[in-house]
Amino acid sequence: MPRIWKFGDSINTDDILPGKYAPFMVGEDKFHTYAFAHFRPEFAPNYQPGDILVAGRNTGLGSSREYAPEALRKLGLRAIIAKSYARIFYRNLVNLGIMPFEAPQVVDALHDGDEVSLEFENGVLHKGSETFQLAPPPEFLLEALREGSILEYYKRHGKFPGESA
């Protein structure tokens, strides 16, 4: 069963992937193994695909480096639940097909190591006998996610979601 990896407030992109481990420094095949290398070195070796990251306020502040969330995606991350997100990080998550749920109360109810299951499409989270409903991202982003990614959406339609043709 997927587990929760819980972090606090203000997890920044240097925490998620230090600049010196960027793919163009260490190689496309290795960079993801350095996720949280400084801050939580046990994360990358023990993370199992489908595990959920839970974090506090201003998650992902800092650099625009898409390879930070890409490292998490490469490890198998499909969803983050946080109290709030930094702007560029939020866009990057959506663009990589990682669902950014914003749910402050749910964050407080979840603990590191909790075993959970997430119905990815409708945002229903189960923890033991408890059930949480997570609010989905805005509709125009879901429109892109439903086609796989915004890249796929643009390739197919030649326009952005919500843009008149």
């Binding site: 898409e66 866009r91 915004i150 843009e163």
Partner: peptide
């Protein structure tokens, strides 16, 4: 404004951004 690689690539390809 700053964006990640995907948004930047979309902007280069389309000339636009959302």
């Amino acid at each position: 404004t700053g964006m990640g690689a995907t948004d930047i690539a979309l902007a280069a390809a389309s000339g636009r951004t959302w």
